[in-house]
Design a binder for these strands. Structure first.
Lengths: 120, 120
DNA sequence: CCGTTAATTCGCCAATGAACGAAGTATATC
DNA sequence: GATATACTTCGTTCATTGGCGAATTAACGG
């Protein structure tokens, strides 16, 4: 019960929902999600913590960067289904489409993908 | 976007999640849900309003009684999938199983089903 | 070692949400 | 019409949440 409620509450915030959708296209570090959402670092850090507590995202640390990705196929069914639901339900949202465009440029900040923008 | 967030927030409360699960077995009137959840009428009324606003339940008025049922198969896909997710994810929860047992007796209060309890 | 960048933690504030009881509405029944 | 039952609305209280900035920790680069 607790997990289902935690997942539902995590999804029920626009900023977190947008972050989840943004991770469709691969992992992002916190500073990129900050650029995307245009919120303060502390706020975004908290949001990603909520998503991680719910099991919706996983994190990986590489040097100064903390990368986040969607929970993978080995995650619990309740998590996988929740992710499937939110991705399918929001993929055509104007805000989400706008975020996808913006992400192209935001990714320039990723040290591993310098100047890969404007290719799409 | 708004609808997805409204649905997620509606599900993210234990009392409302339990109410949704309770409606698996058919419609219930508000007073039965009050008996089940053991919360004040005003609180339960508000909860059911939230569920209805989210499109997760539909209501029907018959005399003094207000009956609620899960949104049917004609509801929007986003709603149907959310209901499917929460029903499948919570059906084995101890609280939910306990509620199902309790519901047998609670249904006695339904004027249309007098003394149908203890049949299971 | 010092400065910079990435992220977290902490304390604060405003807004939201869940709970209640009291009062009001609606619909039976006496 | 009076009374009882079912439900809603309103106002209040208390806890949670989302937002921020300041201070702190962690890791790299001169």
């Amino acid at each position: 019960m607790r997990q289902v409620l935690t997942i539902a509450k995590a999804i029920g915030d626009e900023s977190r929902a947008r972050a989840l959708l943004a991770l469709r296209s691969g992992e992002l570090c916190l500073c990129q999600i900050i650029d995307l959402l245009e919120l303060s670092p502390s706020t975004v850090s908290k949001h990603m913590d909520v998503l991680q507590q719910a099991g919706l995202v996983e994190r990986r640390k590489e040097g100064r960067w903390h990368y986040f990705r969607l929970a993978n196929h080995q995650a619990a069914p309740v998590v996988r289904r929740a992710i499937k639901w939110v991705l399918e339900s929001l993929q055509d949202e104007p805000v989400v489409i706008g975020d996808a465009k913006k992400l192209c440029c935001v990714r320039r900040k990723d040290p591993r993908e310098l100047s890969v923008c404007y290719k799409g």
